[in-house]
């Protein structure tokens, strides 16, 4: 760490050299690090499966199906008029995560959302006819007792947020593309 050989202007030129070398070292290390970090992000084949198409035609009113999308269950529910009615008459300002039902659906009879409880990641019950549907005619998470309504909004229990709606679009009247 001791460099005693010094001349008047040689010193500043040397400092400049050292600084440039240090800068190159930093840039080099940084650019080498990036590939090793980025390799852990989803790979191309994983990303290729990040959109799916679902045919809605076979789902009767009042029925629900669960499909896998990006490794998570997506709830698709063909809602009855009663369920839509319940979802739309709630006073939005009283909700923990205030959202209108209209904001959560493209078409009122089709509710599509990611079926992962926003509390700690369990899968709520309510998809099958015999399931407990909670106090609000929607879904009930058995892990810590979160109740979701017929629009998938959190009404009671520890979960902080509504069940999230994935990006999706109707490619035809009976077909949607998720992702």
């Amino acid at each position: 760490m001791s460099m005693d050989e010094d001349t008047k202007d040689g010193g500043s030129r040397r400092d400049f050299l050292y600084l440039t070398a240090a800068a190159f070292g930093a840039v080099g290390t940084g650019s080498v690090a990036w590939p090793f970090i980025h390799q852990m992000n989803p790979a191309a084949d994983t990303k290729a499966l990040s959109t799916i198409e679902v045919d809605l035609a076979p789902i009767e009113q009042g029925q629900a199906i669960t499909v896998m999308w990006q490794g998570k269950p997506v709830f698709i529910r063909h809602r009855t008029a009663k369920e839509i009615e319940e979802a739309r008459t709630v006073d939005v300002s009283s909700l923990r995560d205030s959202q209108t039902d209209e904001e959560r659906v493209e078409k009122p009879e089709w509710l599509i959302m990611v079926g992962v409880c926003t509390h700690l990641g369990c899968i709520p019950l309510g998809q099958k006819t015999g399931d407990v549907k909670g106090d609000y005619d929607g879904w009930f998470c058995p892990c810590h007792g979160s109740h979701y309504d017929s629009s998938g909004r959190i009404r009671k229990g520890p979960a902080p947020k509504n069940l999230p709606v994935p990006p999706y679009a109707f490619v035809s009247d009976t077909k949607i593309k998720i992702g």
């Binding site: 590939p35 090793f36 980025h38 390799q39 992000n41 790979a43 191309a44 994983t46």
Partner: peptide, 13 residues
């Protein structure tokens, strides 16, 4: 081959 084709920078590593 998946590393070579699909993993980000897999070919490089």
């Amino acid at each position: 081959e998946r590393i070579m084709r699909d993993v980000n920078f897999g070919w490089l590593i």
